[in-house]
Design a protein around this nucleic acid. Structure first.
Lengths: 245, 245
DNA sequence: CGACGTGTTGATCTCTCTCAATTAGAGTGG
DNA sequence: CCACTCTAATTGAGAGAGATCAACACGTCG
């Protein structure tokens, strides 16, 4: 039996879940099998693993990745507290992605059919999960745009902004004193499709220009405007458009 | 009122939907608003458009994409009959992706709250949608691995294999006489994060080596083994793994 | 103390981009 | 029927962003 009630789950602080009824909380808790704690740089899910359970990240940072047989690795998304893991490969036959931790981390493990039970017994929760899955995809979409079409400088600016936002949202002060940033330069490189050396050089260039500061596992934003301009974030003049059909 | 009953929808041939009850069919049909037909190279959804309805692609090919303000474009996924469109941006505040057609195409338009109604009134359908959304993400994951870590040759081999498989699955003969292939080289380039010129040169190189043949809007696979080897598909010796925890 | 992981920097090398020019249809209008 | 225009494909040449190779600094740890 889980010792920590789901009332403390970081997922509950997400906008979608604030209206969660106590019935739904009980439901979720009943599907929860146990918790797992891992140290930093550990593997939660191996690539190619089948029949993976559904997880939720409670504490710490992690990432999803794929590798080629010669070792080249691409990080797909970084995972922060509150993120789902494993919906992507549920019932999937194709070789899935791996999941490694960046820091010490605690995961919530659900039984294999949790996804279905959740849908069956609470359409609201089911809907929320669809929404979260879709939102997760949009993160990958953003990364794909970066990796496919942005220069190294632009990619790094983008990553710093996005991760800063996500990390800052999780802490009370909103990141005024910087945020925890447990990635090594190798992780950044693998997340952006760059080499380690070039990542280092580009990172230093931006830092020397005073756009950010990275030290002791913390990220400080020094010139968000300039970073956003570099990343072409909101930089376009496209106005919101109404549906065409 | 829709004139074509949903019994003919290409979605119904997907494994997940074969068990669909007639009740569920009626439900889907009741949420359907109408159909739209577009010619080739037309826009269904503008980038940055808000409040997009939910669509289904009935006939033809299309693609989702994002662009930077200076015009650089990244194609996120190619859409074939049976694919969902718009789940990603449902209720999303961030600027979404655009959707353009590659060929003449017919779409099914659902009312805005269709996603919720589907979940509410049929958990089975809701579950299937979550699954399809997750599956769609895995397509983007694959592309991200390609764009981030594969060489131009490897990327093109990968794309040819994946699109051939999807297209062949839709036709009765399974693609023995080749499959329809309506992409221009510009689309391939934008889908793989390459320049048009380099895409052309690489494509010709593979074709001259006898790996494939591309003519008159059709794709013929000449040496799938070699292409798969190039793409590092199943090329790894990773055996399926059991769950770690 | 030596081994190791991470970060840093300089020096090449090369894959891919950009620029340019040509060819081959498919329309279109006179 | 024939110029004229457009788009897509093709090929060569030169340029450049980023990869690879190599060395070194620094802190941690057994």
């Amino acid at each position: 039996m889980p010792d920590v009630p789901c009332a403390n789950c970081p997922l509950r602080t997400l906008p979608l879940f604030i209206e969660q009824s106590s019935d739904e909380q009980v439901l979720v808790q009943s599907l929860k099998k146990r918790e797992v704690s891992l140290k930093a740089d550990a593997t939660l899910v191996h690539e190619g693993q089948t029949d993976t359970p559904l997880y939720t990240l409670l504490e710490g940072w992690a990432f999803r990745y794929k590798t080629l047989s010669d070792g080249r690795r691409q990080i797909l998304t970084f995972l922060l507290p509150g993120d789902f893991i494993g919906v992507q490969q549920k019932m999937g036959d194709s070789a899935a992605h791996g999941v490694d931790t960046l820091t010490e981390a605690k995961f919530c493990v659900f039984q294999r059919d949790a996804l279905w039970e959740l849908h069956r017994r609470s359409p609201t929760m089911g809907f929320n999960i669809t929404w979260l899955t879709a939102h997760e995809e949009s993160l990958v979409d953003d990364t794909l745009l970066s990796v496919g079409r942005r220069s190294a400088e632009e990619r790094i600016a983008m990553l710093l902004i996005l991760l800063f936002k996500r990390a800052a949202a999780l802490q009370a002060d909103g990141g005024v004193q910087g945020v925890r940033f447990p990635l090594t330069q190798q992780h950044i490189a693998d997340g952006l499709g760059l080499s380690l050396v070039h990542t280092n050089k580009t990172l230093r260039k931006l830092e020397r220009r005073g756009l950010h500061h990275l030290a002791d596992g913390r990220l400080y934003m020094r010139d968000v405007k300039a970073l956003a301009r570099l990343a072409d974030l909101y930089g376009d003049g496209r106005p919101p458009q109404r549906p065409l059909v």
